[in-house]
Structures are given as C-alpha cells and as structure tokens.
Design a protein around this nucleic acid. Structure first.
Lengths: 280, 280
DNA sequence: TAACTTTCGTAATAAAATTTCAAGTATTTT
DNA sequence: AAAATACTTGAAATTTTATTACGAAAGTTA
C-alpha cells in the first residue's frame, strides 16, 4: 500500500553488497531521486546500472523508472505532511497550515505507532467491564469527558469525576472486573496517577492513555495506550496531544461499536432521537 | 510547492488545442500517468510526442519525465489521504487506519476551506473583547470547555456555562465590545442558537464554529468559522467534527498568542508553574 | 492572394533504461 | 587443495523512451 522508503529500509540487510550500496544511497538521498537518471544513481552509489535495475526488480518494481516514481511520490508525501514550528511573525495563513499539519501529524504518528494488541486488550477489558472509571484533570479532563459522552451513548456506564477527591473515593470502591482509565499526556499528573494506583489496588484493570515511554502512569497500568505528539507552539501543553488522545478514544469507541453493532445501533438511535427535540 | 494537477486545471483554457487534449487526458487519467511513456500518452490523447513535450515545458517542467514524476506524486498524495467508511467486520488495524485518516482529513479540509478573513475578524474581536462567553452543549460542550481552558491560560476572561439557563442569563448581560462564541456542528442546537441570538441582541459580537453552509446559527452570527467533516461511522455525531472544531480553537489560540507574544508567554509560564507542583 | 505567423506532427537525434554476457569472486564438492 | 559450481558484478550491446529539429498545414494579417 505505501511506505516505499520504509520498505527499502526493511530489506536493506538482506541485499547483496552492490544493491545495498544502492539502497543506502536512495535512503540518504530520497529527495534527489526524482532528478537522477539510472546512470547518475549508479555512479553516485559506486555501482553499475545493471545493479540498480536488479535492485529495483528485487524489490518488486518494474524497473528503475517505476521505483523512481514510487519513491519520489512517497518522499513528497512524507515531506508534505511535515511543517515547522509556528513563529511569532507568521502570517495567519502560515499559522493555519502549521497548526493543522501538526495536529494531523500527531494523529498519523499515533496511528502508526499504537500497539494493536494493547488496543485489543483495552477493548476486551472495556467490553467485559461492570463499571468504568475515567480519570483526567486539566486538559485531560476534556478527553475524559469526551470518552464519557461516547460510552454513555452506547449504554456503557462510566463515571468521570473532575474532582480529584471524588476520583480517589471512586477508585477505592472498584473491584475485580471493573476498569479504570487514566488520561495524562505527561504521565506524571499526581491526581490521575494516584487514582489509578488505588484502582489497581482495588483489583480493577487499569488502562492509561499517555505519551510514549515510561512514566509514573505506565507503572500502575495493566494496559498502555501510547499517543505521539509534538507541540507546534511554545509552552502550550495540550494542543496536538489532546487531539491524538481523542483519536484513540474514537478508535476504542469504533472497535467496540463494530463488535457489538446490533446492540449498539439501538442505543445510538435512542440517544439521537432524545436530543433531536432540542434542534431546530 | 503543491497541487500539480490543480495547476493544470487552472491553465487548461489558455492552452493551444493539441496541448489542451494532453491536459484533459492527464486530468482524467492522473492515476495512469506513472506508467505511461510519452509515446503512449501522445497516442492516447490523440496528439504527438512533440506536443506533449511542449505542453510540459509550457507548464514549467523540465520535460515529460519531470511532469510525470510531479503529477504522480501529487496524485498519490491526494489519494493516500482518502479512506473508506468503517465496516462492522473490519479488523482492528483497519479501524485504526480508517478512523485516523478520517480525522486527519477533517482537519485538512477545514484547513483548506476556512476563510482567513473571517478568522482574522474573529481574532480581532477576541483580542478587543472585554468579556467572552462560550456556548455549547453535548459534544460541543467539550469543545467549549477546551476553548475556555486555553484562553484562561492566557488571561482572557471567558465563561463557558454548560447549563443552558445560565447561558441564556449570561448572554442577556453582555454588551457592546463583548464577544459570544457559539459552537454547534449541526448549527441547529436550540440552546446554543438561542443564547447566541440573545447575545447578539445585547450588542455582543457573535462568532459561530459550525459546519459549512447556512443554518440557524449562521443567521445569528457576525463572524462564521466553518469546519468540514464527514463521520467515518454510523450515527455517531461527534468524532471528526469535534476534532476539526478543536483544530479551529488551536488556530485561534495560536494566532492570538503570536500577536501578543510578549504578554502571553508570561501568563503561560505562570500557569505551567502553578500546576507543576501537582506532577511527579 | 501573398506574406507572415502560429500550430503541429514526423522523423532524426539524443538520452536513458534494460538486457546480455563474460569475468571475477565466493562457496561447495571431490 | 584443486576443481566444479553457483553467485555477484559491471561493461557493453540492445531496446525503449524522451527530446529536438524541421518543414508542412492551417490560420492571420495586410
């Protein structure tokens, strides 16, 4: 489907020496490939034209022409997604583009990176849960609230207290078969980590949605869902990160909705109807 | 920079007949270009090889090779973004990819579509506002809450009541120089539209964040910020749409932050520091 | 209608890509 | 350790593809 450059990286160690040289050159100079003829490429990589062709065919391309087009397309696709940071003096259009691309990139990287097995575990845990507690404060409270709204609509009983004392109290009353979800991008938010720790001690299955890597919250989580994010602008904690987190919520919701489609469509229709009276 | 296919469309009417044939063929068959030689293309479009080359050079390309690569790249870039709807039987990986791409697409289309002038007006209104009211219920309440958090951090006093009576009461007390922001994807949510209408009558400048097109909310809004969204899955109102709305909030916030950088960086540092004591 | 300009395709030329093949290198067998 | 075999490689031949040159046809202007 995609990722021509990735594909080359993946097979580079199974190649013969001369083809490996070609692969290395292409990876390092993917930006230039579109303007290189096979002769230039073979010279630059210290091999022969024949080796380049063999390399192309080994990788499943029709020939050099074909590879050239695919690799160039892949390269421009990749680089078009990437945008710099916002500068103070950027005009309004640049800001629109940079912020949007950054948010898109956070979703994309999260999509590439998120562990499908962990996701499946989270789905199973939620599907079998008696009770679900969701913890999050500050910007993460919004994500928690969003999750609550989604799951409530499909009749999964959740709670998402935004009072930290309530969270702790609620966590203490969980038991086996319950699920607690902790949301914190930094992974170090005391209120959330503490609540999750108590939930774990109470016997609940704990899930975290946090940044990639180890942190206090991963230590108290049975299931870890990582999101990727870089912020496009100064100390503004929660822009791309919360969008990546919401994307994870969407995925969880969608997987569950698909698995239990027959039951859930009814609930969704009911709730749709219920609010329709409040629309013009 | 981009949009090679768009560029061809833009100039198609200024071309000589034979070159126009080439242009038409390329636009209709952008997917096949990567595998066509100049001979095939000229035959398929009913012209000569020379005309194809002339066409390429007229458009600023080095030759047919160059155009072929650029157009192919543009085409794959465009189509890679597009993904189908989620099916009940999709496996977990397909759902991850489809939901993510759909969310990305909503951001991208919103980015392409959003009116920069309206955005500028919204920024000016907010910068000069004494008081800012934000209205939203249900899924839009989360977006409202998010906006509140962001603007609070840069010391812009906002309120975002999620009680509809409070909203109406608050709207009644606004006056000239105040700003009211109504968030409703459908544009038909009574509570939000009513509150915004009252705000407008009170003399406030009204801003809406809603779906593209006319709706009840656009009728009561001085400034209209449109988002684009298609949902990847059944009657599930608010997935991609809220992400697109959050993206607009990010943009508003970023533009304002850039314009008032010196003042704002201080506020951001203060608020960062304030919560840091609650982190491990 | 003649002179000129524009547009276009054929054919010649040039460039690039692919294939062939034999030499060189490594590996296995005897 | 020598011979046989298989593998890897690049130079050169061949084929394919792209570009250019040029003149014929169509269209314009005087």
């Amino acid at each position: 489907m995609a990722g021509d450059i990735e594909k080359i990286k993946a097979v580079i160690n199974n190649l013969k020496p001369s083809e490996k040289k070609v692969a290395e050159y292409i990876i390092k100079n993917a930006d230039k490939i579109s303007e290189l003829s096979i002769g230039e490429l073979s010279k630059n990589s210290g091999t022969s034209e024949a080796s380049v062709v063999r390399f192309c065919k080994n990788l499943g391309y029709k020939g050099y022409q074909d590879l050239k087009i695919k690799v160039s397309a892949d390269y421009t696709y990749k680089t078009k997604s990437i945008q710099g940071f916002v500068n103070i003096n950027d005009d309004i259009n640049s800001i629109v583009v940079k912020i949007s691309k950054n948010n898109m990139q956070s979703i994309e990287k999260t999509m590439d990176m998120i562990d499908r097995d962990e996701l499946q575990k989270a789905v199973d845990a939620i599907l079998n849960a008696n009770k679900i507690d969701i913890y999050g404060v500050g910007a993460s409270a919004i994500v928690a609230q969003d999750m609550l709204q989604k799951f409530m609509r499909i009749n999964k009983s959740c709670t998402a207290y935004n009072d930290s004392h309530m969270q702790l109290a609620s966590a203490a009353n969980l038991s086996n078969g319950d699920v607690a979800v902790g949301i914190s991008y930094s992974g170090e938010t005391m209120d959330t980590v503490d609540a999750l720790k108590i939930a774990k001690n109470s016997g609940a299955t704990t899930i975290c949605i946090t940044r990639f890597g180890n942190s206090s919250i991963t230590n108290v989580s049975d299931i870890k869902l990582f999101v990727y994010s870089t912020e496009a602008i100064f100390r503004s904690g929660a822009m791309a990160s919360r969008i990546a987190q919401l994307n994870v919520i969407d995925i969880l919701f969608s997987v569950i909705a698909c698995r239990k489609y027959e039951d859930i469509i009814k609930y969704l229709e009911n709730t749709s109807e219920a609010v329709s009276s409040r629309k013009y």
